[in-house]
């Protein structure tokens, strides 16, 4: 696989290290001369110094042979243009961009970028969840980051103990999809009773997540 990484700073170093160890072919394009020198000394990769949002720079770097393009510059518009040049002109299907403004995730996807990640959004949502409660385990996001999949332990002071699921008034956008009890899996119905030490596996929309936790854990600071 031939991967192009455009822009970025420290994270490029770690990406290159990891990708070269997996045997991928790499080209990096970066505006920082010193960084380019350092990278070319340390790794057996192609390094191009220049503005990767300019078509002729991409062309000279041989983007026509790329299988995947990763745009990591700190300018959202630059990342969009890089991915679009790659996709629309060179027909590269796998394009990846980071954006600062989470609002741009949807916009970039509508404009043809395959994968879009907002680091500020990811960091802020992780911090938010940590701040809400320590009882969540194995939290992941699915459905373009709009749906949270989480594991919550039921402890002895929780108000849901002894209640049947139909008695718990969950928001419509959330469901207890599975209960882990004494090492066994219980697929809950409305009649299932919640017991102490249950591990609840919950799928919920992101916006009702804190409400769900409040219902299970009682008062949350």
């Amino acid at each position: 696989m031939n991967i192009f990484i455009i822009g970025g700073k420290r994270e490029v170093y770690f990406l290159v290290k990891s990708f070269t160890s997996k045997g991928y072919q790499l080209t990096i394009i970066n505006q920082d001369v010193e960084f380019c020198k350092k990278m070319s000394r340390q790794f057996k990769i192609t390094v191009v110094n220049g503005d990767g949002s300019k078509p002729f720079i991409l062309d000279e770097a041989g983007i026509a042979y790329a299988d995947m393009v990763i745009a990591l510059t700190d300018s959202d518009p630059d990342n969009l243009v890089i991915c679009q040049i790659a996709e629309k002109i060179y027909g590269i299907k796998k394009t990846f961009a980071i954006v600062s403004d989470p609002e741009n995730i949807k916009i970039f996807m509508q404009l043809g970028v395959e994968t879009v990640i907002s680091t500020s959004y990811i960091i802020s949502s992780i911090i938010e969840q940590r701040a809400i409660v320590d009882d969540i385990k194995n939290l992941t996001h699915i459905g373009e980051g709009n749906v949270a999949l989480m594991e919550v332990d039921v402890t002895n002071d929780n108000p849901v103990i002894g209640k049947r699921i139909h008695e718990i008034h969950f928001p419509e956008q959330a469901i207890i999809s599975c209960i882990m009890r004494d090492g066994k899996t219980v697929i809950p119905t409305g009649k299932t009773e919640i017991m102490e030490d249950d591990h609840l596996i919950i799928i919920s929309e992101l916006k009702v997540q804190s409400e769900v936790l409040k219902i299970i854990k009682g008062k949350v600071d």
């Binding site: 949002s53 300018s75 959202d76 518009p77 969009l80 243009v81 916009i107 404009l111």
Partner: peptide, 15 residues
């Protein structure tokens, strides 16, 4: 900034 212009133009046109 050219890229900003192109991004805004596309948002206006496509979205």
């Amino acid at each position: 900034d050219d890229n900003t212009n192109i991004m805004i133009a596309q948002i206006a046109k496509s979205l």
